[in-house]
Simulated assay, not measured.
Amino acid sequence: MSAYAKIHVGLKQLGIDGDDARDLYERVTGIRSLRAMSPKQHDEVIQELGRLGFERSSSRRRTPLEGRFAKKLQALWISAWNLGLVRNRDDKALIAFVRRQTGIDHVRFLSNAQDARKAVEALKAWIAREADVTWPKFQDGRAEKLAVIEAQCRILGVPIGSEISAATDETLLAAMQSFGRCIRAAKGD
């Protein structure tokens, strides 16, 4: 893969675009344009992207997050992705969010329910505030999926069909993903 391609993949993976990318180039090399850079400067940009969390090797298999609360956190993170709130769907971004909320370095170390609740509730509050999701009173995966789909329909300005409440969990998940692609495309992500 060429240096240009690596840089663009890294920028996309990290959710950096436009002027933010040019600011990064300038901070690292003193130059705001990739075309004006030398190969050595391209390598410096790639190294900086790596420092920021870009994983250059796409051949490595993704391992699922481990931990008592990992699945719940991942489900909420993907909901935020499908609502167009999260620009980086990667688990590293979720781990960074959990670290900011709890001070704990990784979700696998979230063994205390009170610490996990901080991260879960912060994520739910952010999603509710930014995407107008009305979460059900009691934790129910199906009702939470429906709440996200209702918010997605509002964002897209489409009516929610009455048949959605009878859909299978797999169909709900597929609908969330499809609406998420539409939302991200409308935002230019």
Rank of each mutant, 00 (worst) to 15 (best):
R154Q: 07
H106P: 01
D90Q: 12
A186W: 00
I95C: 05
K187S: 10
S162R: 11
L172D: 12
L94E: 11
M1Q: 09
G10A: 10
K137V: 12
D169F: 06
V148G: 06
I95A: 05
I149E: 12
Y25L: 12
R108Q: 13
A93Q: 09
D140Q: 08
D132M: 03
R184C: 02
P64G: 14
K71L: 11
A116R: 10
Q152L: 03
K72I: 14
G188Q: 10
Q177E: 15
Q152P: 04
L24G: 02
T168F: 04
A185E: 15
Q139S: 10
L156N: 01
R117G: 08
I155F: 00
N112Q: 13
W77H: 15
I127N: 01
I78C: 02
R62K: 13
T168R: 12
S59D: 14
R68E: 14
I46M: 03
L11H: 05
R35I: 07
L49P: 02
S79Y: 08
G188R: 08
R68D: 10
G103F: 00
T63A: 08
K92F: 04
L52C: 06
P64E: 15
L83D: 08
G50E: 15
I31M: 10
K118P: 02
A131P: 06
P159L: 10
R181W: 08
V107S: 07
K118M: 13
T171R: 14
V98H: 06
M1W: 03
I183E: 08
L49R: 06
S38A: 12
Y4L: 11
D140T: 03
K124A: 13
G15R: 06
H42R: 13
C182W: 04
A186D: 13
K124T: 11
A125P: 00
K187P: 01
G18K: 09
V45N: 11
A122G: 04
V107E: 11
Q177R: 15
I164Q: 05
D91R: 00
G157R: 07
A96C: 03
G103Q: 05
G10F: 01
L94W: 01
I46K: 03
G18N: 11
V45S: 09
N112R: 13
A166K: 12
E144K: 00
A147M: 03
I16C: 04
I155T: 14
D43H: 04
I95R: 06
E55D: 14
A96H: 10
H8F: 14
Q101R: 14
H106Y: 03
R184L: 09
A128Y: 02
D91W: 01
K12N: 10
A119E: 11
T29S: 10
R62H: 11
K72G: 12
I155M: 02
D90Y: 03
S79K: 05
A128W: 02
L11E: 05
G161D: 15
E55Q: 13
I31R: 13
D169T: 13
A185C: 07
R51W: 05
A125I: 06
N112P: 00
H42A: 09
V133L: 00
C182Q: 15
L83A: 07
D169E: 15
I31T: 15
G15V: 08
R184A: 07
W135E: 11
K12R: 14
L34I: 12
V107A: 08
L172I: 08
